[in-house]
Design a protein around this nucleic acid. Structure first.
Length: 825
DNA sequence: TGGCAGCGCAC
DNA sequence: GTGCGC
DNA sequence: GCCA
């Protein structure tokens, strides 16, 4: 099939350098193409030798042109390039499934990229008005508990919206893989099917496991097909949830918008001097927010570019909001709200570029919310408008001046000094805004000062490591190039291959997985199939998650990437004695970092002090399938507790993810950088990848949407996972004991469950949440000693599903698969 | 007035 | 319960 | 800070 195919790969991140360097995906595709008999064209390319120009999905036509132009191949010579296609086409052609069923190349017309100037109409509307229902029906706690609250409202909401989102259809490739449920460590597909059929109103297809290497290929993006336009639309949609506006969705995911964002980023973010390398401005994490974020103070700009002037002044304030914490996290939400307002002012019709802006900001009134007499549905309120007025009238923003000025005095010093000190101190790993503020009031002025005083101040393991490596870790310019991250992942995989042959695989996640060429830290995720690989179904105690992490750490140490704790301390002989106290928090691994994660836990009965024995027994004899149990927080609290509704085998032992956060460097001895390792059991590969790949904003938007949006698609998706209806709920209390959350049975509720109307997402599960319709009877176990549920709970189905791929997770929510590089929000 | 994600865990 | 980090 |  690939005879005669000669593909030229045009990557995104480095399209501007010549010859362009492929990223991981490009390399995988190229290698696989060669394997199957195709050719990979070399740079500089000769048009006659190229049959297909393969570009990454998020490349723009102008970037392709630029890349080709770098090779003195003018856009006019696009004609010889017969096919310029998105790499999804190549991915599809290279898929094992495609190879098996066809010996012809797939049709490339849906994947065609057109040359500049010949832009065809897009098939799906991505830009401007992505039809969506703003979360105006977001439930309050009270609403959630109203019996008629959820699904009906959802149906009404959807009926009101004229055009449905391009959500996945009920047929199609991505849809056919479905989550399966079972209990951790079990591989009995028949049993899973039986339990599934018993619990689910609609039967979902079951598939055999993939091998670890198949899994790797699948999840690293090579074999995950997706609909480009649907994915882009879904991203824009979720983005509107991050901003909570529901209007003015991002336009930078279509090609024109991407070009504009690139121009803005290139003009505003000068590369910082770095020990490693500057990030590519095009793929910088925060291109949208950085619009107009350079230091202001150019008075002329007030007149030449008023919109930018306003935005810059607001940005000046925003930069100080995050740390402005009077209560817990107080500043965080102000920062977010201001960011939203800034976003509105940075986009059409205002914009921060003279050439782009269709309207100049003349008064605060015009940008206000409608309810204040302005033009926006929401997002810009009274306070922001007042600030805009002040900027327009006085040419500055006093509240920002307070932070930036040098002659405003505050407790402990001048405001400017405080800002400087806060930046220096919060740059230390383990020191947040509140702690930094405390240090500032104590007279600490920089990281060195903190190091001196450390013995007398609070010191966590993280802070000790952060201070030890303050020169390498602190500051915004410190980036880790992708090559080093790749090496670390490879080293981790190599270390595992010896002890976990075929049952553990590693992923480079975090921003790297989203396609960045460099990152502030390295995130490596390990997935262990501790139950399998040796021909038996039994969980292997010697192959559990902790031993996997230990293995990885030792492998990284043997190869010179990380230090043992004593090595780190020995290398630092001059620090005060108390400073050298060993970490009490290394997770028992003994390396320079903090370890987190405990031994597996289980739902325990009230009587029975030895949980371990119970666990063993339950593993041997799983409870009756449809036994239902739950756990509720102590009653009476005003805060919402979670009532876990268990159906199935959830009260058996479950493997918990293990985390290690530490520092590493190149074996040859470069600067140190932060390294995060997280080991997950196989059953949550999908949710874990989704979580660990981020971006943080993407995650938050997704979770917010999944939990609150009463959209019919979501409700339907939730119902697929968990049926409503009457049931007897075994209820327990969850409580914390030695940093471990345990659950204990305390009684029964006879209740009718309303339909699930949303999801709660974390890194191990995506679980439907419910509104309880009515509770008919409560039976309190006398052994509960008065502890019971409160009536202020969110009801959550706690079945353990198996999320074996990200596609499954998206699919279960009724979303199209969104590839990692589109998750940069 | 409560929510803006949802965790683990040190203190 | 607060603070921090992911 | 903004929204319901």
């Amino acid at each position: 099939m690939f005879r005669g195919v000669s593909a030229l790969f045009v990557p995104h991140a480095d399209a501007s350098c010549a010859p362009p360097k492929h990223n991981t995906l490009g390399n995988i595709l190229a290698a696989r193409l060669k394997e199957l008999g195709g050719k990979v064209a070399k740079w500089p390319p000769n048009p006659d030798d190229v049959t297909h120009v393969v570009v990454l999905e998020n490349i723009t036509t102008s970037e392709v042109a630029r890349a080709l132009d770098m090779q003195k191949t003018a856009p006019a010579s696009w004609t010889p390039w017969k096919r310029v296609v998105q790499c999804a086409w190549m991915q599809m052609a290279l898929r094992r499934e495609w190879q098996e069923k066809s010996n012809e190349l797939p049709d490339d017309s849906p994947f065609a990229v057109s040359p500049p100037g010949a832009e065809p109409a897009k098939r799906n509307v991505v830009r401007g008005e992505v039809p969506c229902t703003p979360p105006k029906l977001r439930r309050t706690n009270q609403d959630a508990r109203r019996a008629d609250g959820g699904a009906e409202a959802a149906a009404a909401a959807t009926a009101g919206s004229s055009t449905p989102l391009p959500f996945v259809r009920s047929t199609g490739e991505a849809n056919q893989r479905s989550p399966r449920w079972g209990w951790a460590g079990r591989n009995d597909v028949a049993e899973q099917a039986a339990s599934h059929a018993a619990a689910s109103p609609t039967s979902l297809a079951l598939q055999p496991y993939m091998t670890a290497s198949e899994q790797l290929e699948h999840e690293q993006g090579l074999f995950t097909p997706y609909d480009r336009d649907a994915a882009a639309a879904a991203v824009a949609f979720l983005r509107s949830f991050w901003e909570q506006t529901g209007v003015g969705v991002a336009d930078r995911f279509d090609e024109a918008g991407a070009g504009a964002a690139e121009a803005a980023a290139a003009s505003s973010s000068a590369p910082t001097a770095s020990k490693f390398q500057a990030d590519d401005p095009v793929t910088s994490d925060s291109d949208a927010d950085d619009a107009g974020n350079e230091a202001s103070g150019h008075d002329t700009m007030r007149w030449t570019n008023p919109n930018l002037f306003v935005v810059q002044n607001l940005n000046r304030l925003k930069d100080h909001m995050g740390g402005d914490g009077r209560g817990p996290d107080a500043g965080q939400f102000k920062e977010k709200a201001l960011m939203r307002a800034i976003g509105i002012l940075s986009r059409s019709p205002y914009g921060t570029e003279v050439a782009v802006a269709q309207r100049q900001i003349k008064s605060a009134n015009e940008i206000l919310d409608k309810k204040h007499g302005g033009e926006h549905n929401n997002g810009v309120g009274r306070k922001t408008a007042e600030k805009v007025t002040e900027i327009l009238e006085t040419g500055t923003l006093r509240r920002a001046d307070v932070f930036d000025g040098s002659n405003v005095s505050m407790d402990g010093g001048s405001a400017a000094e405080r800002a400087r000190v806060m930046d220096a101190l919060t740059g230390i790993w383990g020191v947040g805004p509140n702690i930094a503020n405390r240090y500032f009031l104590d007279g600490v002025r920089d990281a060195d000062g903190l190091a001196e005083r450390l013995p007398f101040l609070r010191r966590t393991a993280q802070q000790k490591i952060g201070i030890r490596h303050r020169a390498d870790l602190a500051g915004p310019g410190k980036r880790v190039p992708r090559a080093i991250a790749d090496k670390i992942r490879k080293a981790a995989q190599d270390s595992l291959n010896e002890a976990f042959p075929g049952t553990a695989c590693t992923y480079l996640v975090g921003s790297m997985r989203r396609g960045k060429v460099s990152s502030g830290d390295v995130d490596v995720m390990v997935v262990v199939d501790s139950a399998r690989g040796d021909g038996t179904d039994a969980p292997r105690r010697d192959r559990n998650l902790r031993s996997a992490l230990r293995r990885v750490l030792e492998g990284l140490h043997d190869r010179g990437y990380i230090r043992r704790l004593e090595e780190a301390l020995a290398a630092d002989p001059d620090v005060p004695p108390d400073y050298t106290l060993s970490n009490s928090n290394d997770g028992g691994f003994g390396f320079e970092g903090v370890g987190r994660g405990h031994e597996p836990t289980a739902v325990a009965p009230l009587d029975g002090d030895s949980e371990d024995e119970d666990v063993e027994e339950r593993e041997e004899n799983p409870p009756e399938y449809d036994a239902v149990s739950g756990a509720a927080g102590a009653g009476g609290s005003k805060k919402e507790e979670t009532l876990y509704i268990y159906r199935g085998h959830d009260d058996v032992q479950r493997e918990e993810p293990i985390t290690w956060m530490g520092v590493a460097h190149e074996p040859s001895g470069g600067p140190y950088f932060r390294l995060d390792l997280k080991v997950y059991p196989r059953r949550c590969v999908g949710t874990a990848l989704l979580y660990f790949t981020g971006s943080a904003r993407f995650n938050r938007a997704l979770r917010y949407w999944a939990r609150w949006s009463p959209r019919a698609e979501l409700v339907r998706a939730a119902r697929r996972l968990s049926p409503s209806g009457p049931g007897v709920l075994r209820v327990g209390l969850s409580f914390t004991q030695s940093a471990t959350t345990k659950t204990r049975h305390v009684g029964e509720l006879h209740a009718h469950l309303e339909q699930p109307n949303g999801f709660r997402i974390n890194d191990t599960d995506l679980t439907p949440i419910f509104v309880p319709k009515r509770v008919e009877k409560e039976v309190v176990d006398p052994a509960a000693k008065g502890r019971r549920w409160g009536g202020n709970e969110l009801w959550q189905c706690s079945r353990t599903y198996e999320w074996l791929s990200e596609a499954d997770v998206f699919n279960a929510m009724g979303l199209p698969y969104i590839p990692p590089f589109l998750r940069n929000m």
